[in-house]
Amino acid sequence: MNPVPYGYIDLNADFSKLTTKEIIRTLNLFIEYGYRVIAINTFVDMESLASQPSKPKKKKSGPMEDPVPCPHTFDIPEDISNKVELLKRVTVKYSEPGQIIKLRDSKNFKQYQVFAVQPSTLNAFSHACSTLEVDLITLSCKEKLPFTIPRKMYQVAVQRGIHFELCYADLITSTDSRINCIQASHSLSIVGKSRGLILSSGSQSFIHIRSPHEVQCVSLMLGLSHVQAKQSIQDFPRHLLQRAYGRRLGKTLFDIQTQESQDDETMR
């Protein structure tokens, strides 16, 4: 794995509704604020896919549809892509553990570098914490949290190295999502001192992007200490990316890569 470049990391940017011009503007803003790695999110709702299974059953002949769409590709000028590393991230919303098993066969799924889940029931949450091979558990603040977070499951997840995510765009957009976000983060701090909490933008346009230092100041309101605030933006995302690389390889001792550098050519 190439080393993660020095700088801030944003793990949740949604470019699906933007035009190319707006994407370039957003990326320029990210660069200005000192972000070096940006993960572009693709959202998959397994709940709604599972609720309409009757149609594909009738057409048995056709090949199985892939539940995960292809990752978005963007044509970005080279001067920007040199400064920023774009990663692909998939977020899967699911309510029952059975729904996530389909992902194993999916070919598109393997193209994503970061795998996040958004459990919508207590059952799914405890499954994600205890058994699922996942990098990140997202707590959605669009609606109220549908379950109370069990203390034991949270501790199990932290021990396994899974991180939890809250989006600071929710604090900006509307009153309800702001209240939900503060409540969720406070409940995390009650349950387990908000260990392993990552703050990411979750922005759908460049208006909601803030500089990392501003996010650190805001996160004091969410019940984090100064140290945790810094970790939630700098250290944990870095740790997560390395862990995600390890997850994709499976059980390995070491990984050999060939590098095409100028030194090789001069040696010949």
Partner: peptide, 10 residues
């Protein structure tokens, strides 16, 4: 405001 409500409400 929102912060006070979120702290206490639940």
């Amino acid at each position: 405001g929102d912060y006070g409500l979120a702290c206490v409400q639940n």
